[in-house]
Amino acid sequence: MTFHRTFTRRVLASLALSTAGAALLPLAAAAEQWPAKPIRLIVPYSAGGGADNAARILAQRLGAALRTQVVVDNRPGASGIIGAQAVAKADPDGYTVLYDASTFALNPLLRKMPFDAATDLVPVSLALTVPNVLVVPPNSPDADFKAFVARARAQPGKVSFASYGAGSPAHLASELLNREARTGGLHVPYKGGAPAIADVMGGHVDAYFANAGSALGYLQSGQLRALAVTSTRRMAALPQVPTIAESGIPNFEVLEWNGFFVPKGTPRPIVERLSAEVQAAVRDPQTRARLVALGADPVGGSPAEFATFIAGESRSWAQLIKANKIVAE
């Protein structure tokens, strides 16, 4: 009786292992053949924006390297959640990829999420970072960053900061400056970056932490004036503009970022291959030059490095969001 029970258990265990191995075979084969068809790169923001422009540059380079089409699919809405959810629920076969931005780390801190960003999506590679630029109207009374801070300190609640929504990187940058410089600026949220910039240019709002890529054209045309950048080193595209850190607020740094993700369960060889190709893309001189022209700093990096970066972003902003009782609109 004991012999039969033992024999039966061994047979069942062997069958279970065989079944599990058989189930893994199609995934392994698919990973070896990847990519065998076009890849859909979902950008959860509108066409023509900073993330979309960078995604299209990288999609072109990745398509050439992978010898397939990488098709950008814009899915804007709900601060990037709609597009990210579409990827989280997609088949984990390497043919649906997410190109997301800083709001990926911020959304779980501000909103109830329809998926778990920490487990349902796998970080592939950090593509680039983009500093913010503190911009003011051309006729602003503040000659430089120090004058702006002095005025904001002298008139608490009177100097206004535009943003493209509560909890947005532009909003958080202004709250961080309020904390570090004791400025007491007033937050004025808008429904998008375009109306925010328009009101700053018109002198209706005092300042705005603009994404560098979206601000460059207005700065070059003289419609806006830059006081400082939020990176720890000066931007190549704006070498004459000082950093906030060198202007009297040590260690001040705010960077928006873009990166690649795939659905949970995507075979590891595909994740590693895609990560390697992203890293090669941002090292490519032509691709790099096109990204720098957008105000970006190409980065690259492994899946583990990107995961660590996101965790750090979440921890840093969680403290500020909690202290200032910031909630999404």
Rank of each mutant, 00 (worst) to 15 (best):
G259I: 01
V159F: 04
G312F: 12
Q240C: 02
E329Q: 05
E253Q: 12
H204M: 09
V159E: 11
A28K: 07
G77W: 10
M113G: 02
S221M: 03
P35F: 05
Q85Y: 11
A226E: 09
A293P: 07
L320K: 09
V87R: 08
Q33M: 06
E277H: 11
P169Q: 09
G157C: 04
I39H: 08
Q240A: 14
L177Q: 06
L58A: 00
A281H: 11
N53W: 06
A170N: 13
F261I: 02
W317G: 00
N132R: 10
L17I: 09
R9N: 08
V271G: 04
R61D: 13
V87E: 01
P38G: 03
A143E: 14
A307P: 04
G222E: 05
G193V: 02
G77Q: 11
Q286T: 05
D100Q: 09
D297M: 10
A84E: 14
R179G: 01
A29N: 13
A328Q: 08
E32A: 12
L291V: 02
G48A: 05
G21Y: 08
G185E: 12
F145S: 00
V122Y: 10
R151W: 05
D120Q: 12
H171M: 05
L27Y: 14
S18T: 15
Y164F: 13
V11K: 07
K264Q: 12
A117F: 14
A84Y: 04
G192P: 03
V149S: 02
G300Q: 09
S79K: 13
I81D: 05
